[in-house]
Amino acid sequence: MYTPAHFEAGPDAVQELLTRPGAANLVTITSGGLLATLLPFVYDPSVGEHGALHTHVARNNAQWSEPAIGESLMIVQGADAYISPSWYASKAEHGRVVPTWNYSTAHVYGRLVIHDDPAWIASQVRRLTNVNEAGFDHPWSVDDAPERYISGQLRAIVGLELVIARIEAKTKLSQNRSAADVDGVVAGLSARGATESAADVERARPVRA
């Protein structure tokens, strides 16, 4: 991943990308070529040296049954947003500004492990559900559905575990702009309702002497 020094993601930013509720694109190389699927995941830091990403796919999805050649990749994406040059204070000063795109992302590489075990899959689904339901006033639980129905749903999916070998991460969040330009970006994003992107820019704001 091309990452200029001022956009390098620190440990806290990487942790945020891996632990916030979301989905990632799983990319594998197989004998038939590249395969990719967008999958919700949960991060388990207790696995191996760097942790693992746990997810599942439909049993009919060939990505689990086609053996992966070499490393597999999950592309984790944080909030992203268009940045208008009209938000920069420097536009009025000299006009030498252009549009750009802000984003956070982590490329997570590792060994893909298949789990066709009902107990593992059930545990993964419960963890995934609990993570994503945590913010609801009345969170849904797997136990809210009939046991027989859930059993049938679990038989239709296969568990996947990406045991992490390395992570390349980038947070391109206006760190290369002046404090006044960052103020304008935060205000512009907030006015457009992109509150998550605005918060990311604020957190990444460089500390200047």
Rank of each mutant, 00 (worst) to 15 (best):
Y2W: 15
Y2Q: 15
T3S: 14
T3V: 15
T3Q: 14
A5D: 10
E8C: 06
A9E: 08
P11M: 03
D12R: 06
T19P: 08
A23E: 12
A24R: 12
A24Q: 10
N25D: 13
V27H: 10
S31K: 07
A36S: 12
F41Y: 15
V42M: 14
V42L: 13
P45R: 02
P45K: 02
V47C: 08
E49A: 15
G51C: 05
A52L: 01
H54T: 01
H56L: 12
R59N: 08
R59M: 07
N60Y: 14
N61A: 12
A62Y: 11
W64F: 03
G70Q: 00
A79H: 14
Y82H: 09
Y82N: 05
S84W: 10
S84G: 09
W87N: 01
A92G: 15
G95T: 02
Y103N: 02
T105V: 12
T105S: 13
A106C: 05
H107M: 04
V108C: 10
V113K: 07
P118H: 10
P118V: 02
A119L: 10
W120E: 12
A122T: 11
A122V: 06
S123C: 11
S123W: 11
S123M: 15
Q124C: 15
T129Y: 13
N130E: 15
E133Q: 07
H138G: 02
H138K: 02
H138R: 04
P139M: 02
P139H: 04
W140M: 03
S141W: 15
S141G: 14
R148M: 09
G152I: 01
L154C: 04
V163T: 00
I164T: 00
E168V: 09
A169G: 05
T171W: 09
L173H: 03
S174W: 08
A180R: 14
V182G: 07
D183L: 06
G188H: 03
G193M: 10
G193S: 13
G193V: 07
T195M: 15
A198I: 04
A198E: 04
A199G: 06
D200F: 00
D200E: 08
E202Q: 04
V207P: 07
R208N: 04
